[in-house]
């Protein structure tokens, strides 16, 4: 963090570490199922293992390029203002995921649309709520009635006898 926000330098490093970590996980997973080359061709983990190795190698190069080359030192990845508007968008999505797990997608959708419209667009409460409910109802009609694909439901729907 610099006083201007998050620097690109630190994000480059973080991303390289993230992909490198995934690469190591891939190698480990592949190692569990065998990475050899049998008489009838490669083992189950042969390709995944070398793929993992390449991911790690690429990540290391990215890391070194950033650190050794002092690249992107002065670039800003996200300044405070952008971080704020991004958080306004991302946090409701996280809330959406959690609420959907607990209460089902219909309740989740209604609440999410309500809060997202409030937070991002500063719409009136009643407008946001009406939109949320309208979208949920549309989903219900479309998915449950027209296409007959059930969405995740929670205690509220069950209380009304909708499964």
């Amino acid at each position: 963090m610099t006083h201007n926000g998050i620097s690109r330098y630190s994000m480059e490093i973080a991303t390289a570490l993230l992909t490198g970590g995934i690469g190591l996980a891939i190698c480990y997973g592949a190692w569990q199922v065998g990475t050899g080359w049998t008489p009838s061709g490669p083992d189950s983990g042969y390709f995944p293992f070398w793929i993992g190795v390449l991911v790690v190698a690429g990540s290391v190069v990215n890391l070194l390029r950033t650190i050794v080359g002092h690249r992107h030192k002065d670039e800003i990845f996200l300044d405070a203002a952008r971080l704020k508007s991004l958080a306004r968008f991302v946090l409701p999505i996280l809330g959406f995921a959690v609420i959907s797990l607990l209460l089902g997608l219909y309740v989740g959708t209604t609440l999410y649309v309500l809060f997202a419209m409030r937070l991002q667009g500063h719409y009136a409460w009643w407008k946001s709520l009406a939109s949320g409910v309208a979208i949920s109802v549309c989903f219900y009609l479309l998915f449950e009635l027209v296409f007959q694909v059930p969405l995740l439901k929670g205690p509220l729907e069950h209380a009304f006898g909708i499964y």
Partner: peptide, 16 residues
């Protein structure tokens, strides 16, 4: 997953 029907008292008497 919700398997049981958490019916509350005030709800739809006939169903209860």
């Amino acid at each position: 997953m919700y398997k049981r029907n958490p019916l509350s008292a005030h709800q739809l008497k006939p169903l209860a």
